[in-house]
Amino acid sequence: MTRRADGQVPVTSLTKALRRLTAAAIFSSLTGAAMAADNRLGPVTHLPLPRYVSLKTDEGNVRRGPSLSHRIDWVFKRRDMPLEVTAEHGHWRRVQDRDGAGGWVHYALLSGVRTVLIEEDMTPVYTQPDTNAPVAAAFEVGVVARLGACNPVWCRISAGGYRGWVEKRALWGVAPDELRD
């Protein structure tokens, strides 16, 4: 920054300095977001990204950007639907559903209660995590179930008054390597 002979800083120099600081702050912010992605932790919650959550309400507006001023692209209309959080910005979470459709949703519409979608039609629900165990039920594709414990191959789920074990490969809303107690 240059100073005049009288010690004052010209306004144009202040403007340039301010622009450099603003550019540096934006770069730092973007770099921080990239670092958060590298560490796989959200910059707001410090929870893992991506992660699964569920829709807390019967309806949830999905916006093009992380604020109320952004346009609503569509509305999720299924309570307990599992969603994958892929980014965070303030009180907003960028989510996507099983089909990859998504956008920004206010965090108040989301729940940490884990649910899954049945991906294969007439998926057998076993009484034990073993294909030789008795079948307690069979779920159609698209059924939303509450997620319980998971081992490397099986997850315990419950829906419609039925509960049991399902092979993890038949579910959307749980990571293939995820273990749960």
Rank of each mutant, 00 (worst) to 15 (best):
L21M: 09
T22S: 08
A24D: 15
A24N: 14
A24H: 11
A24G: 13
A25P: 05
A25I: 06
A25S: 12
I26N: 11
I26Q: 12
I26R: 09
S28P: 01
S28F: 05
S28A: 14
S29D: 15
T31Q: 14
T31S: 15
G32K: 01
G32I: 00
A33E: 07
A33M: 05
A34F: 01
A34S: 11
A34R: 02
A34W: 00
A34H: 02
A37N: 01
N39A: 14
R40Y: 03
R40F: 04
R40W: 03
L41R: 07
G42I: 01
G42T: 03
T45R: 06
L47V: 01
P48F: 02
P48G: 10
P48M: 04
P48R: 10
L49D: 02
R51L: 01
R51W: 00
V53F: 04
L55G: 01
K56Y: 13
K56I: 08
T57R: 11
T57I: 05
E59I: 05
E59N: 10
G60C: 14
N61S: 12
V62P: 10
R63C: 09
R63V: 06
R64W: 09
L68Q: 15
L68E: 15
S69Q: 12
S69V: 10
H70Y: 15
H70I: 08
I72L: 04
I72F: 07
V75I: 15
V75N: 05
R78S: 03
R79S: 08
R79V: 12
R79M: 05
D80S: 09
M81K: 00
M81N: 02
M81H: 11
P82D: 02
L83K: 00
E84H: 02
E84P: 04
V85N: 11
V85W: 03
A87P: 01
E88Q: 07
H89I: 12
H89M: 12
G90V: 13
G90L: 15
H91I: 08
H91Q: 12
V95A: 04
Q96T: 04
D99N: 11
G100I: 05
G100S: 04
A101M: 10
G102N: 02
G102I: 06
G103Y: 10
G103S: 08
W104T: 01
V105T: 07
V105N: 11
V105S: 09
V105A: 11
H106Y: 13
H106R: 09
Y107E: 15
Y107Q: 15
L109P: 01
L110N: 06
L110P: 12
S111W: 02
S111P: 07
G112F: 04
G112Q: 09
G112K: 11
V113D: 15
T115A: 00
V116P: 03
L117M: 12
L117W: 03
E120K: 07
M122C: 00
T123P: 12
P124W: 06
Y126A: 07
T127S: 13
T127P: 01
Q128T: 09
Q128A: 13
Q128R: 11
D130C: 04
T131P: 07
N132H: 09
A133P: 12
P134M: 03
V135D: 10
V135H: 06
A136V: 13
A138N: 12
F139S: 00
F139T: 00
F139G: 00
F139R: 00
V141L: 02
V143L: 07
V143K: 03
V143Q: 02
